[in-house]
Design a binder for these strands. Structure first.
Lengths: 331, 331
DNA sequence: TATATTTTTGCATACGTATGCAAAAAATGA
DNA sequence: TCATTTTTTGCATACGTATGCAAAAATATA
C-alpha cells in the first residue's frame, strides 16, 4: 500500500531527515551520494512516491500542459495530440486535455486550466477571447496557438506558411493549364482558411484567372454538400482548391457521385496531408503540414517561457511542401 | 492578478474567517446565505480561485480522470476521447491524457497517473500488467477497460457484445448465400479481435462453412496488405469479415486495385461504424458500436467507485447493431 | 422573557513537501 | 595535527485549503 507513504516515513526508515528525502527528489538540490542511496533504498522498499500536489503547493509550479482541441474528427488533430503528448512526456510534462465545441475556447475551460495552474497552454483549431488571454497573461501562463493565428502580435502562434503554400498551389494549377477555379473555404474567420484563400487568390488575380469562392466548414460533409451546391449552380471548374483534406475527400466523393472525373474534368487539391489523402481511393494532391517541426517549435517556445517567462509573442510560420498525387495528375 | 489571491485575502475583505470562505467553495459544507453572498462578492472582486493543489493535499482526492489511449490513428478513438471528455466535464472532472505506444500500458505511465493521484483510470485500446493493476488497486483507484477485456473477472471492462455481434454478422453473410469466407484479425491477443473471430467461427462451423483466418493489425495498411497476400495465395472468397472498419477500408481499396468488385465478387463487413464507413466511396457494411452508451456506463461505474470504492469488477457488454450498406448488398 | 435547541462561525491544526538558516560533518590546506 | 573552507544535514516554517471542536449566534419552545 502506497497510500500514506510520505517522505517522513522514508526518512525514518533511511535514518535521515525529511529534508534529505525531499532533496533526493528535488532536481537541483544537493545530497551526498551516501544518503541518496539510503533514501532511494528505503523509498523503494516502501513504495514511496512524492506527492505532486504538495510539491506544487510549495513551488507554485506544475508539470501539466493544458491542450485545448476542437476538431477531433479531423484526423489531422489526433496526430497533433499524439505528437504533443509524446514530446512533453519526454520532458516530464503531462497533458490536461480540454475538448471544446466552440471556435472560441470558453471561460469555463480557461477556469479549469487556471485551477490546475498549468505550466503552459496550447490551443489548436480554436481561438480565445481577450478576457481569456488576459487571465492567462495575468497568471503568467505561456500560451501558444497551434495551426491558428490571430491578427496582430498579441499571441504566439505556430502555423505552416499558409500564404506561401496556397500561392504555390495556385501556381501549380496555373502551370497545369487551369484557367477557371474554385476555392472552398473552411469556417470563415479562421486564419487558416483566410490565409489559404488570400495566397491562392493573389496569384490568380495576378494571372487574371477566373475564380469563385464557396464557404464551407472544414468537415467531410461540408465538402460533399458544397459540390452538390456547385453542381446545381454552375459548370464545374477546371480546378478546386479545398481548404483542408477531410473536406477535399468529401468533395471527391461528391464529384464521383455526379460522375465528374478527377483529374480529367476537374483537378482537386487539399491541405494537411492527412493519412487518408494517400489512400488509393482518393490519391489527393495536397500540401504537407510539417507537424513534427511545428510541434517541436511549439514545445521549445513553451518550455523556454516556462523556465523564464517573457510574455513575448511571435507568429511562426513553417514551410511545408506540395505532395502531388493523382487528383491533379494522370499517370 | 490572481496569482497570490488566497482564501485568507477573500476572508479579510469579506470580514469573515478563512474557514467560511472554504465552506463556501466546499460542496457539502454549510454556510449561511448572508456570508455566502459576502464571500462570493469579495471573491469576485479579487478574482479568487481555490487552489486545487491545496484542496487535493487535504482531501487526498482529485477531480482528474486518467485516460490512456493507444490507437489515436483509428478514428474510433478520437470519438471516444471526445465523448469521455464531454461527459466528465459535466461532472467537474478533467482529463489527464496519456498516450501509449504499446499494447500494454507502461509502468512509467502508471507512475504518472499515481503521481497525480487521479480519481479514476480508463484504458482504451490497451491493457495493463498485473503489477500496474496492483499499483492502482493498492491506491484504491478505480479502473475501467474500454473496448478491451481481460480474461477472468479481475477487471472492470466495457465492450460491445463482440461475440453476439460477430455471430450475427456470420449469420447475415450465410443468409446472403456466402459459403466461403475469410476473417481478418486485428492485433492478436486483443480481446476484441479474439472474440470477433470466435463468434464468427462458431456460426460458420455450425453451418460447416469453409473459412480461413488472416492475421493483421487493426490499421488501414494492415488491411490493404492482407488483401495483397490473399490475392497472391488463393482465390478470393465470397465474403470477408474484417475486425475493424479502418482495416476494412484498406481491404476495400486493395480489392479495388485488383479490380475485384464489391459486393459482387466479394462482400466485406467491418466493425465499429466509424464515420468513414458511411462515405460513398466505401459504403461499408459494419457493426455499430454504441459508443455513447458504452461511455455512459463507464462513467457511471467510475463515478460510483470514486464516491464509494468497492473494487468490484465486471465485464459489461453492450449490444450494437448491424448497419447494412453497399459493401454487402447491391442496390 | 427565559431556556433549550439548532445553526453558523472562528480557532487551531493538519495535509506532504520545499527551503532558508544554522549546525554538523567532511574536505582541504598548512 | 589543527585551523579553515566547503559540503551536507536537520530544524523549523511556509504553501493554501479542509475540518474537528467549541464558542457564538440564531432559532424554536415553553
Amino acid at each position: 500500500m502506497n497510500q500514506g507513504i510520505t517522505a517522513k516515513d522514508v526518512a525514518k526508515l533511511a535514518g535521515v531527515s525529511q529534508s534529505s528525502v525531499s532533496r533526493v527528489y528535488f532536481k537541483g538540490a544537493t545530497v551526498s551520494q551516501k544518503t541518496r542511496e539510503k533514501v532511494l533504498a528505503a523509498a523503494k522498499e516502501l513504495g514511496y512516491r512524492p506527492n505532486e500536489f504538495a510539491r506544487s503547493l510549495i513551488t507554485n509550479r506544475t508539470k501539466i500542459i493544458g491542450l485545448v482541441m476542437k476538431g477531433v474528427q479531423n484526423p489531422f488533430y489526433p496526430q497533433v495530440l499524439k505528437q504533443f503528448t509524446t514530446a512533453f512526456k519526454k520532458l516530464g510534462y503531462s497533458i490536461l486535455f480540454v475538448y471544446t465545441n466552440n471556435d472560441e475556447i470558453q471561460q469555463e475551460d480557461i477556469d479549469t486550466l487556471l485551477n490546475y495552474n498549468v505550466a503552459g497552454v496550447i490551443i489548436t483549431d480554436a481561438t480565445l477571447s481577450l478576457q481569456a488571454n488576459e487571465d492567462l497573461f495575468n497568471n503568467r501562463i505561456p500560451l501558444a496557438l497551434f495551426n491558428r493565428k490571430i491578427d496582430g502580435n498579441k499571441f504566439y502562434s505556430v502555423c505552416c506558411n499558409n500564404l506561401e503554400a496556397s500561392k504555390q498551389i495556385a501556381q501549380y494549377l496555373l502551370d497545369a493549364g487551369c484557367s477557371n477555379m474554385i476555392y472552398i473555404s473552411g469556417n470563415e474567420n479562421t486564419s487558416t482558411s483566410i490565409e489559404r484563400e488570400k495566397g491562392f487568390v493573389t496569384v490568380l488575380k495576378e494571372n487574371k484567372v477566373k475564380y469563385k469562392k464557396y464557404i464551407s466548414d472544414f468537415t467531410y460533409e461540408g465538402g460533399y454538400k458544397t459540390i452538390e451546391k456547385i453542381v446545381s449552380q454552375q459548370k464545374v471548374p477546371e480546378a478546386i482548391f479545398v481548404a483542408n483534406d477531410i473536406m477535399a475527400l468529401g468533395v471527391m466523393d461528391s464529384l464521383k457521385k455526379h460522375q465528374i472525373t478527377v483529374p480529367d474534368e476537374v483537378k482537386v487539391v487539399g491541405f494537411d496531408n492527412i493519412e487518408m489523402s494517400a489512400w488509393p481511393s482518393y490519391s489527393l494532391t495536397t500540401w504537407e503540414q510539417p507537424i513534427n517541426e511545428m510541434v517541436n517549435v511549439t514545445v521549445d517556445y513553451l518550455t523556454a517561457e516556462i523556465s523564464e517567462y517573457s510574455g513575448q509573442t511571435q507568429n511562426i510560420e513553417i514551410d511545408g511542401r506540395l505532395i502531388v498525387r493523382k487528383s491533379t495528375q494522370n499517370g
